[in-house]
Nucleic acid binder design. Structure first.
Lengths: 348, 348
DNA sequence: GCGGCGTCATGAATCGTTTCAACGATAGGC
DNA sequence: GCCTATCGTTGAAACGATTCATGACGCCGC
């Protein structure tokens, strides 16, 4: 039933070694032979068995990717970027979504190990990176996505969320706003924490600006609407004149709540800015100002970095104890800069 | 460096066969031995090499999934549903997005074949299913997602788009609307075509209702805004009193265009309904009526069906030419029913 | 005491590909 | 005409887990 190199070899009257060479080193084989073998391959419908190939090679031709949530457009774009770049390098991507649960993340990582992936890209669900560090020590390169390691143990691709928070808040201040409310998900989430930190720094430069924090349990549209309702419930005098939402989903919810009864006008009464610049941000009734993160580039760069790590690990493993010094650790950390996108919701 | 069964066997003072049995048939091994082997596994940090395992087994423990577009929330949800169900069955999912390009779809399918996946779920990018039929003939079960085969060659999970179009349109008619415009992507897309067909049938039942078609090049927010602008440009008398958009992204664009200048009120002047019921539909300024497709269940059911196909193919392959008759082909086609979700944009 | 049975463990054979040392043939240099 | 290089090809070894025929051992009943 299943045709293997042996069958092809027989059909083309060559040895199995030659068939293998046609597949992997065509230039080592005489053109006429190449053609004959390829004809046999086509006729028999031969498909290379990757399991055998990678058993021999000791490694697969795939990488693993674990993100926090497929449903989040930001991560969907990261995945696309990674997938595209990996495809260029001839690598397949094993994809998993942890739904922010450490156990699911662990299950995917275990699966990836069994598959002998070349490396793993992961947006960690928890602050604890020991499992990933151990994975790397076991010889499987790891690149953190949208997260950085405290030490230099793990490579990473991230966006400076502190700067993003700073940019958003300074923009509101520049627009003349003085009473700003930060609406954010669990402050324990690193992204939320950093964005708030950026906001604090921007406010610190202006003594006449007040910053309020409204902590919400999740970064969803629903919670955004909830937050908007809470703000609406206050009397006009005690409301802020600007809201900085920790992500666009929240911002959309807030916007919806404000617009629903028309009580609060955006941006006249309250200016609003979000974060992530998802495709929908430009498509809301009042187009939403936001902080853009280059999601696809993040994914692509993460793959690039992983490829470098793989090369590094490979070289490191082969060279003796007195080998060359480690390359500059700084290069193992890619940090993108967030970009302010001004639209109507802040008066742009 | 890499620890294999041999190392574990040595450490536990047993044979490799026993280690394998501990891994796969623990009940065939004496409890004391199981424990000793597992201790050795833990101490050595042994991780099973899946390539070798599946080389021997002849099959992998994974399935492939190719969707049209990761960026589309509908497909993101299909993927989640499939992933969850596959995980329950102990299968990994190799994931790919074709971006509606046949060549990319083909590349993924080839990759999956090399990986010896157990089966493939695919939302075909083109009308031509011969490649997939051939794949199935080659022994790899295929389940179509959001698409049905013309004949009974391929199993499928789909939603009846004709019925969905019918439901949406009848709802508009029931709400008293008489001049309906269908705004849709390329009519060559099966989904768009079917939804329009449903609309036609609903209109056919009411001689006093007129149906207009506005064909757009893509199902995006941007194109929706374009369509909205075209409608706004007409004088009020020649405008429709209802719009049925072929998906929610289009509907959001239309809504945005209408709301922007406040000229056209939704639903007072024009009622609006979309399709897919993505999470954002409930989150637009005027909450959007839509047709819900159970995306996650589609993904989950597709995996169920694929598992059944795999079992069927396995049984079929082992039994002689005079084996049992094929099971009912009807069971190989799962068709979900779309559901009307009424919100404010149609006066709900 | 012996035959028979059930429970566990063994280790060589196996899967399909890649790799590599070795070989024959052809061409070129002297 | 001989020696060496180069090129193309060969075929067997190797990768690491699983499988299965075989055998060791202990126990029971007669």
């Amino acid at each position: 039933m299943a045709v293997g190199v042996k069958d092809v070899a027989a059909a083309a009257s060559v040895s199995v070694g030659t068939v293998s060479n046609v597949l992997n080193n065509p230039d080592k084989v005489a053109p006429a032979t190449v053609e004959r073998v390829q004809k046999a391959i086509a006729e028999l419908g031969f498909v290379r068995n990757d399991a055998a190939r990678q058993l021999r090679a000791g490694r697969s031709r795939s990488i693993g990717l674990v993100v926090l949530d497929v449903g989040n457009p930001f991560f969907a774009d990261v995945a696309r970027g990674a997938e595209a770049r990996a495809a260029e390098a001839g690598l397949a991507v094993l994809f998993g979504s942890s739904d922010e649960r450490a156990d699911r993340e662990g299950a995917y990582v275990d699966l990836f190990r069994e598959q002998r992936v070349n490396g793993v890209l992961v947006t960690p669900a928890t602050a604890d990176l020991t499992a990933l560090t151990r994975l790397q020590d076991a010889g499987i390169p790891v690149v953190l996505v949208d997260r950085e390691a405290d030490d230099d143990a793990l490579a990473s691709v991230a966006v400076d969320d502190v700067e993003g928070g700073f940019l958003a808040t300074r923009h509101l201040i520049d627009a003349g706003r003085r009473r700003i409310t930060f609406v954010g998900g669990p402050l324990s989430t690193r992204q939320v924490h950093d964005r708030l930190e950026g906001a604090r720094r921007a406010v610190a430069e202006h003594p006449d600006v007040a910053l309020d924090v409204m902590e919400m349990p999740a970064l969803t549209v629903l919670q955004g609407r909830e937050a908007g309702n809470l703000l609406r419930a206050r009397d006009a005098a005690s409301r802020p004149d600007a809201v900085f939402a920790a992500n666009d989903l929240l911002a959309v919810g807030v916007l919806q709540s404000f617009a629903l009864l028309g009580e609060i006008r955006v941006p006249e009464d309250i200016a609003l800015i979000g974060y992530d610049d998802i495709d929908f941000a430009a498509a809301t009734v009042v187009p939403l100002s936001s902080i853009r993160q280059p999601a696809r580039e993040i994914g692509a760069s993460a793959v690039d970095l992983l490829l470098a790590e793989i090369a590094r690990a490979g070289a490191g493993g082969e060279r003796g104890p007195g080998g060359a010094p480690e390359p500059d650790a700084g290069a193992r950390r890619i940090r993108f800069r967030p970009e302010l996108i001004v639209r109507a919701s802040t008066g742009g």
